[in-house]
Design a protein around this nucleic acid. Structure first.
Lengths: 255, 255
DNA sequence: GTAGGCGTCCCGCTGACCGGTACGGTGATC
DNA sequence: GATCACCGTACCGGTCAGCGGGACGCCTAC
């Protein structure tokens, strides 16, 4: 629950509350389920959901509601993520072709990393990440490298809040995490060894702004066994640097 | 303007009107520009846009408003598109690796094709398509194959409405288009030869449901000259068929 | 039969939303 | 440096869109 809940006293608030009631793995939600998750009165949820359908943000199926294609379309127009994606695609492609392992592109949002893209082949390592999904920063390579190149106050905020355990290898000691962040800044890459999911390893490198802040990061993920993250240091770093210089040439500033 | 405009007499309608005022190539829109595009009173636009910001659907920058990362995240959760994307990625990847040309995944929405994914390398043909963007069905290979495997009434609707010319090669004669659709059903693939943009050729194949309706389609695009679409018939068709059978095994129905 | 869960609809109250209007800042033009 | 055009922001009283408790009919399970 990373965000303050939307204002339920306003139509718009109710609407986004309903929309955000959907998680990455929900296909379709019934009205009753929406009521349960949002806490809205049934009649209200029914009406607002109906309005969302007429506005083509939700689809009505015989089983319930689901997020519509119109919403997908809208989301893809978010300039930052979309232009990042377009710019990055060739680099991600290269990286995939060289490694044939799962390649991620992600940005930081609060204490989470949001995956903007995930590309992989038929034999990809089965990872819990989904495009558009979230993972905590502290337990993924991509999250750690994003955090390492974030403002100090953000870093402190994460380090001083409880670090949730996801696997036996998840780093939950702030001191250890802090040292890893230092090493990540040093090396320009971060690693993950079964910290988010058992059997998975990962290496990530940052896409940097002129001010040495991470705009996004890319990673390569593979299964323990055939995959040795150290083997890809050069390639991941090269891709990230190429992307960094390309991105800094095109302006797309922040808030 | 493919859709009836949203209801401007409701908060939600105003909100989505503002959101949809953004096109694929807009990075940031000023309040004044929003007012111009939406036709809303300035005060109203200001307030609603502000509400959208507090609800994290818009970002406020020093230059104006822009669609937020939260919206991107939400859009990526649209079940149909997202699961399609996840399912398709390995196939698209394969296809790219074999051809090293731009690969598209798209669905039909009304008279347009909406691109769900676009992957390409550094040397990709410069095409007007964007992920999340739209193109008319009648002037793209992917659009034609989608139309060919759509309900007859949809086909008739497109054929009987004016076919806009985009290049000297765009097919604007309904009869010719209809014949091509027939051929497309016959062959299981559709072609495009500089019909949407000069210098571009394209070949597409459908992802079919059990009922022989197109759920989506994939295409390979390349520049006139080095690229001969006929050379890829087998590969594109194979990828599409593989994807079809995989998709029909996993249920994710329509309305 | 009955009980619980579901989606839908009704309808009178009310406060969220509306937008005309006004104000301060900023850049171009003369 | 005066004028003007255009911008973003803020105010505020009227009113109607939105609200949600409640009732209803339909299922499936027990």
């Amino acid at each position: 629950m990373p965000h303050e809940p939307a204002d339920l006293d306003t139509v718009l608030g109710k609407a986004v509350t309903i929309l955000r009631a959907f998680t990455v793995d929900d296909q379709v939600l019934s009205l009753a389920e929406l009521v349960r998750r949002t806490g809205l009165p049934k009649a209200t949820a029914h009406r607002v959901a109906g309005d969302l359908v007429t506005n083509r943000l939700l689809d009505r199926t015989n089983l319930g509601y689901r997020l519509s294609g119109g919403l997908f379309e809208l989301g893809m127009r978010a300039s930052v993520e979309r232009s990042l994606l377009e710019l990055a695609m060739p680099f991600l492609q290269d990286l995939y072709e060289r490694t044939h392992e799962t390649v991620h592109l992600g940005v930081r949002e609060g204490h989470d990393v949001v995956y903007v893209a995930k590309i992989g082949g038929h034999r990809q390592a089965k990872s819990p990440s989904r495009p558009g999904g979230r993972m905590p920063v502290h337990c993924t390579a991509i999250g750690k490298i994003l955090l390492a190149f974030s403002d100090p106050e953000v870093q402190q905020e994460v380090l001083s809040s409880p670090l949730q355990r996801r696997t036996p290898h998840t780093i939950v000691a702030p001191g250890l995490l802090e040292r890893q962040l230092g090493a990540a800044v040093e090396n320009g890459v971060a690693f993950e060894r079964e910290e988010s999911a058992p059997g998975l390893q990962c290496i990530a490198a940052p896409i940097l702004t002129d001010g040495d802040r991470a705009l996004a990061a890319i990673s390569v993920t593979g299964p323990v066994g055939r995959f040795r993250p150290e083997a890809y240091v050069t390639q991941v770093r090269a891709a990230a640097q190429g992307l960094s210089s390309l991105a800094s040439r095109r302006r797309s500033l922040s808030s």
